[in-house]
Amino acid sequence: MPERNPLDPEQGPIAPGGGYGAGMDLAASDADTLEYPESHGQEPGGPAGKPRSLWSDAWRDLRRNPVFIISVLIILFLVFISLWPGTIATQDPLQANLQKAQAGPEAGHPFGFDQQGRDVYTRVVYGARASVTVGVCATLGVVLLGSVLGGLAGFFGGWWDAILSRISDVFFGIPVVLGGLVFLSVVTNSTVWPVVGFMVLLGWPQIARIARGSVITARQNDYVQAARALGAGNSRMLLRHIAPNAVAPVIVVGTIALGTYIALEATLSYLGVGLKPPTVSWGIDISDASNQIRNAPHMLLWPAGALSLTVLAFIMLGDAVRDALDPKLR
């Protein structure tokens, strides 16, 4: 490798690893004098420490971000009660006591009773499983399918892009509620999967369009040309250069869509084509309770509150991840 040129006045001495001064503005240090400005006192391990990358930096950043920690705790709690609802709710979500219909909170039933005298607290806990499954699976499906198809369309362009864009236009044209009535009324399976499948089928074009647009924007940058000039293959350009720079809008829209999918599940259930009793879900309870909001607001508030908290947690998570992946915000 090249030696340092001793004749060159531009080259100052290399600052020893020690004395980091206070962080100074780098922009101001771009001078011909090139006495290396002191490093930021940012990293205690010193610059001679481990090489860092976007992902390791993002992870370091996330671990210290309270928003990230809170949202992850909420999500872990939701996952926990989805898997083992019996640990915090000992009653049966289906046991009805009509004498207590719409009754308010009392000892042992902190959230009160619903229309059929079932314990609202137990139903909120048990409802997490179906709602979180629908929300998370539909979002994952939509984001994966949409960003892969849209990303490839944006990257390769040409006829593949033309065909895919027309197909996504077709799916865009299907009204969600009408489509749900048509697709789901022929399904007799009462699990969450037909609902998830329907949401993925109708949801992917939205993400595909966003992914396509941001990939096209990222692809035009000179650093992608530079990578190609170095001999990088398509997969390296897509994964190292384009994906990290195109993922932010997908994350934002994806996390917001998660709440929409849980709400859509409620709408479909209300129309009788989504989840069907005896499945317990927030969506079913919210649509039942919405008729009784003046008589018994607690029936609506608790499942709706749980839904809002879930959506909030995922939006906060998405926000934190997006920010951590942008070095400029650090």
Partner: peptide
């Protein structure tokens, strides 16, 4: 054969060290 690009603001990937 290597290249130096015109615009130093778009020729470096902002998300790479």
């Amino acid at each position: 054969i290597q290249m130096v690009f015109q615009d130093p603001y778009t020729s470096l990937n902002p998300r790479m060290t």
